[in-house]
Write a protein that binds this DNA or RNA. Sequence first.
DNA 1: CGCGTATAGTTGAAGGCTAAAGTAATTTGG
DNA 2: CCAAATTACTTTAGCCTTCAACTATACGCG
Lengths: 177, 177
Amino acid sequence: MLGSPPAERIGAVSEMKQPRWLTPNEREMWMRLVGITFLLPGVLETQLKRDAGLTFFEYHVLAMLSEADERTRSMSDLARWSNSSLSRLSHVVTRLEKQGWVRREACPDDRRATNAVLTEEGFAHLEAHAPGHVDEVRRQVFDVLDQDQVRAMSEGLGSVLAQIDPGSSAAPNGHCG
Amino acid sequence: MLGSPPAERIGAVSEMKQPRWLTPNEREMWMRLVGITFLLPGVLETQLKRDAGLTFFEYHVLAMLSEADERTRSMSDLARWSNSSLSRLSHVVTRLEKQGWVRREACPDDRRATNAVLTEEGFAHLEAHAPGHVDEVRRQVFDVLDQDQVRAMSEGLGSVLAQIDPGSSAAPNGHCG
DNA sequence: CGCGTATAGTTGAAGGCTAAAGTAATTTGG
DNA sequence: CCAAATTACTTTAGCCTTCAACTATACGCG
């Protein structure tokens, strides 16, 4: 239900606003993209859960924190950087806090804001398991792509991402306070 | 925690098995792919839930059924076609059954097997809302890509998908019975 | 100032997903 | 031809996510 329907059903000339069905090429790409969005997180999560006790999303949150100034970001910024809602992030940070990998701090400048800080243990845990994760990413993704393909996909994916998340390119890097 | 670490930490020549960190190009592509896998399903689901009362995954299941022989597939085949576990599919089909969009049928040939059948109402519902969904897919994805980009991405995504789901290309089309 | 609105974040309930275990039928291998 | 292993599917429980509601602070402006 994505490509064009049987010819008989297109007949009615008077019909307004024919849906712009996907071409065969588009449909093929679409099926593949859907397949990847469905399967890739699960594949990576299997390795992460087994080796590091982390969700793919949790790993990503820790990684985004590790690259921030002073390993600290406001919840809102961290949500933007990890492509999540504030609510989802809040729940996850609560979990990570219980593990001792992240700590919440009040922001002195803006008393509405909360900073999430990656703890030493959190950083150590990430550092310990990053190589295994990167290896898995390589095995599943980059080992089957050559440099030109990487460049081409990066370009296309960048366009789509800019479309679905216009705010992402404007993400600040700092924390508050 | 995906690109190379600061130079000081690479110093130890004797260190075995340096992780194969991502190059800047790879890292850029990776961040974009992760962003899309996190955000795209949600974006499409917003439209689908509002207009059709369907999850992205539910829509996909109905779509895969609609294209099968007699709009019927065994649960196992349907799971393969919709990139899901049998368990997830079973839950979803139960839900779709309650809505009257899908019906389960025993398979006469193999009494372990169950066929999922798209009902008339299910097909009508899909047909009614497919144009809106396709429009959304176009807006979010294909309107920002030219034909060459579509071909290039299709190729790259195909390689990755083949890697993470070797069984997907061998999916049969028929139902049992 | 003070009112309305926007921003920042948390929480709780409802529902979906995963993993593991359970049932049942079929195939395989001795 | 029977036991063991495999395949097909369902179910239960627990975790995760989403959605809506709520608190609290900051900003805009008449």
